[in-house]
Design a protein around this nucleic acid. Structure first.
Lengths: 227, 227
DNA sequence: TGACTGAATTATGAATTCATAATTACGTTT
DNA sequence: AAACGTAATTATGAATTCATAATTCAGTCA
């Protein structure tokens, strides 16, 4: 009798890390906002000890910042941070593309292809929600297809931080169309299993996304103090 | 009266994260070894609370692994992990090389040059200790010269994990000489501020380092059970 | 009225306590 | 003697308590 399956009862603090991370990434806790231990403890029904452990982890991930004797604040998403984060993500995506071409099975590629079609359909239907989900799925599948958990975990960390930026701007229709085109090209390379090609495209895709963010930010009138 | 300088009194847990990380990276705590909270609490003179917070952070950095109700163990350094980590570091070094060429001042380059000479001297004197230190300084200076703290923090995380591998093998004289040569080429590119060139070289340097590790591991007789 | 002082309150960092899971030690049975 | 089962011990996860830093708020004085 070999029960390889382990009974998984996550510890409180692991659970909390996950839930808190979601609150931050999904913008339920807004950047700059202070994270009141007491309130969260009550709403989660736990004591401060595991919650504080979770906050330490979130801090090491860069999602919150701790100030001694002043508690935790949700980390801001600044243009400077984006400027520094995107190039790093772009490099990781490049590597992911290269490795995915080598390590994905034909079935894996077919699965991505299906999601790609769903994404294109969502684009034509202007269904932002579905588009966003499909897009995220595709990228996640490519990263996972690289079969490199170190790469995956670091990518996830950075992606979480950057994903919060989507609440700062709304992407233009032009950028949306361009992104679809880039994805088409990526699919071509993936089908051909052109590792270098896909890597280059994924890196470029990410830097173009960054450029679009920058542009959207500069176009945004808000915060321009001269009225 | 503007005292921008803040009195910095690190919290206990920050201090502990640092000290524990050192113990792990410097191999005072051996891979696979269990980390007994009680003993460490005594030797550091702190209670379990901040120590456990520190362990959670170390775990999120991948230096220890936590098992529910079974405490913490120092993470193993496996060939599989190295295989996955080195390509990621290599990409980050490539980016660092590109950015360093753009962002380092002439004085910064001169400073690296000086360390490079010290390293070469240590090589000819076969002074491994000094060599290792100078080498590490150079890489750190290049990373820092990239002026990208996101890149820097992720690189530091990965470098810490990989650095532990040096206790697994001893590098060959051939590899040592080759590494020096690679560094010479890197210095050339840096002087010319050839961003792409330096990036490529740094990536290659890292992958060659990996290859040398693999070779040294396979040459190593230990653990080959047939006696 | 408005800025400053200092006490009261609150929130935080860290130690301690408590409940329980894991490990060890021991005794029993075959 | 070896293997199993059970009790004692230890280690861990989480709650609670305690000390102190930060913040709030009321009162004072210019």
């Amino acid at each position: 009798m070999n029960l390889t399956k382990r009974i998984k009862r996550p510890t409180l603090h692991e659970e909390l890390v996950e839930r808190l991370r979601n609150l931050v990434v999904e913008d339920a806790l807004k950047p700059g906002e202070k994270v009141p231990e007491k309130d969260l403890c009550e709403s989660f029904g736990v004591s401060r000890t595991p919650l504080r452990e979770a906050l330490k982890v979130l801090a090491s991930e860069g999602l919150v910042v701790l100030q001694a004797n002043r508690g935790a604040r949700v980390a801001e998403v600044t243009p400077e941070e984006l400027e520094k984060t995107f190039p790093v993500i772009a490099m990781l995506e490049q590597l992911a593309g290269e490795l995915a071409c080598k390590n994905l099975s034909d079935a894996g590629i077919a699965s991505i292809e299906k999601r790609h079609e769903a994404m294109v359909k969502a684009f034509h239907a202007r269904d932002i929600k579905s588009y966003f989900q499909a897009n995220q799925d595709i990228h996640a599948a490519l990263i996972e297809g690289a079969r490199n958990d170190i790469l995956e975990s670091h990518h996830r960390l950075l992606a979480a931080r950057v994903r919060r930026a989507r609440f700062m701007v709304n992407l233009s229709d032009e950028r949306w169309a361009q992104a679809i085109q880039e994805h088409e090209q990526m699919m071509d390379k993936l089908r051909e299993r052109d590792a270098d090609g896909l890597g280059r495209l994924m890196k470029m895709h990410m830097m173009n996304k960054y450029a679009a963010h920058i542009k959207a930010l500069s176009d945004k009138p808000e915060h321009s103090d001269q009225s």
